[in-house]
């Protein structure tokens, strides 16, 4: 066999053996990984409404228990009406509800935004007044560690707490991430709709702002219902979605 042919055969067999090995591993471990990812999503939903303490370790069981106790999930159509049928057409929006003492204390909407390097997945929790942000979390992203990757850190996410998605007059204004220097020059009235960004991650901030705005406008009918107190109590059989989207 000539040298070249030998190299090609060897390279091919290496590739086949390696890919077989990886396929078996990926397939075998997939159920465990999906379970972990699902628990992690539940954990982030809980974190967005402040039910996860920073300095405590939680087991998967703790998370599932906390989730089952506090969070409900409904689906709404594009007009913000709760849909109890299983019809999937037109596409329905999932809304997670944090229930405290029998009433809805906050609602949580899933965020799926464009980022610099990939999608940014997270949750934005709004208080039952339909205007105040209760929390923001990110559970999956591909941003650069140390720069855009800081969006997963608590210090950044805490900046969202207490900010508003409406302006002083009560009109929808979304929430945008801006540079510290620009934030200082904003009039006080606009500062309630702005969040201090991350230095070195201007683009991540810009994409995330746009993503948040899109999602919030999509959910605006739901927020209006909350602002006018029409969604605080739910039909008993309203629960319609899986625990994970």
């Amino acid at each position: 066999m000539s040298e070249n042919l030998k190299s090609i055969v060897f390279a091919l067999s290496t590739a086949v053996v390696c890919s077989l090995l990886l396929t078996v591993a990926a397939q075998g471990l997939n159920p465990l990984q999906r379970e972990n990812a699902a628990v992690d999503q539940q954990k982030n939903i809980l974190k967005s409404v402040g039910l996860i303490a920073a300095d405590r370790a939680y087991t998967a069981e703790d998370i599932k228990h906390l989730y089952a106790e506090n969070i409900r999930c409904i689906r709404v159509d594009e007009n913000g009406n709760v849909v109890t049928s299983d019809a999937a057409d037109p596409p329905l929006l999932p809304v997670y509800l944090y229930r405290k003492d029998g009433a809805v204390a906050a609602y949580i909407i899933p965020i799926d935004s464009r980022g610099l390097w990939g999608r940014i997945h997270g949750y934005l929790a709004l208080e039952a007044d339909g205007a105040t942000i209760a929390g923001f979390t990110v559970y999956k992203h591909s941003e650069t560690p140390g720069l855009g990757g800081e969006i997963e850190k608590r210090w950044f996410q805490d900046n969202f707490k207490g900010k508003k998605i409406v302006d002083r007059q009560g009109h929808f204004a979304a929430i945008s991430i801006v540079k510290q220097a620009k934030l200082d020059t904003l009039p006080a009235a606009e500062r309630i709709n702005a969040v201090d960004g991350i230095s070195g991650a201007t683009l991540t901030g810009r994409f995330l702002s746009a993503g948040l705005k899109d999602t919030l406008s999509e959910y605006e009918p739901v927020s209006i219902k909350f602002r006018t107190n029409r969604l605080l109590h739910l039909p008993a059989d309203a629960e319609r979605c899986e625990t994970t989207p």
Partner: peptide, 21 residues
């Protein structure tokens, strides 16, 4: 490189299955 890359992906998969956080 293929040997190393396969082993690294394997390690990553195992971590994601058993030590997710």
């Amino acid at each position: 490189l293929s040997v190393i890359a396969s082993l690294v992906i394997l390690a990553d998969e195992i971590l994601r299955a058993f030590l997710y956080d």
